[in-house]
């Protein structure tokens, strides 16, 4: 068996989370959640924010944690649900929905893969008083699956399919997640990337560029593609 991971500050939060809960969270902190969370990604955003359908549940009363996720789950013949693994999808592409989503849903935590840019945290998350948690490794599907205690509801299963439907999960000791953004809009990913970037010039030195160039939006390896 793998040894338990130690050495990082770890906190356990109850959902719905409060402003006080988030105020003390530094980037790099390990977080576990208890309570109710829901999934929502492009299918849900398009349906609610693009097409104008009303929310199918009372947000943020039910939950203020939105997980960018599609579970590995199936519906049995008797209508019950089986959830195996749970893993996040990359969040950067949902940035365009966030301002409206925060306004409508009252979400305070977004969980996903890979975070968003520091610029987006400052522009979109700060006004909403929200933070971002990233899943670990991409992903700890089995550990997160263990944290799901029940399926409270599934909305728009027929309309959006298993992967894009809005799953409402009751969770216990659900994690681990890492705090990527704090309430000032700092990003752990970007802090780490600045350190990595310092070595890049050295890495490429002495390697001749190829004869045929390519069109591209950036040739600077310090830039991100998201």
């Amino acid at each position: 068996m793998a040894e338990p991971v130690t050495g990082f500050k770890t906190v356990r939060l109850t959902v719905p989370v409060t402003d006080e809960d988030l105020a003390g969270l530094a980037i790099g902190t390990i977080v576990y959640l208890d309570g109710v969370i829901y999934t929502g990604r492009e299918g849900v955003y398009q349906r609610v924010l693009g097409d104008g359908h009303p929310l199918p549940l009372d947000l943020p009363a039910v939950s203020n944690v939105n997980f960018h996720c599609s579970p590995a789950a199936s519906v049995d013949d008797d209508g019950s649900y089986r959830v195996g693994g749970v893993t996040a999808t990359a969040s950067f592409r949902f940035a365009k929905w966030m301002t409206e989503w925060f306004r409508l849903s009252g979400a305070k935590i977004i969980i996903g893969k890979g975070g968003m840019s520091e610029a987006h945290y400052r522009e979109l998350f700060l006004p909403a008083g929200a933070i971002y948690l990233t899943t670990v490794g991409y992903g700890t599907g089995a550990l997160l699956g263990r944290g799901i205690r029940g399926v409270r509801a599934v909305h728009w299963l027929e309309e959006l399919g298993n992967a894009q439907a809005m799953w409402v999960f009751e969770v216990e000791n659900f994690g681990p997640f890492i705090v990527d953004s704090d309430l000032e809009g700092n990003s752990l990913f970007e802090q780490q990337a600045r350190l990595v970037n310092a070595n890049l010039e050295n890495l490429y030195s002495g390697l001749r560029p190829p004869a045929l160039s390519r069109y591209g939006e950036t040739d600077d390896r310090k830039d991100e593609l998201i």
């Binding site: 590995a72 670990v136 991409y138 599907g141 550990l143 263990r146």
Partner: peptide, 22 residues
């Protein structure tokens, strides 16, 4: 991250659940 992934593989095999939901 790597140690957590090792834990995750143990959990997947023990529970017979997918190691990654994607």
């Amino acid at each position: 991250v790597l140690k957590t992934m090792l834990e995750n593989w143990d959990a997947a095999t023990a529970d017979r659940r997918p190691m990654c939901a994607d």
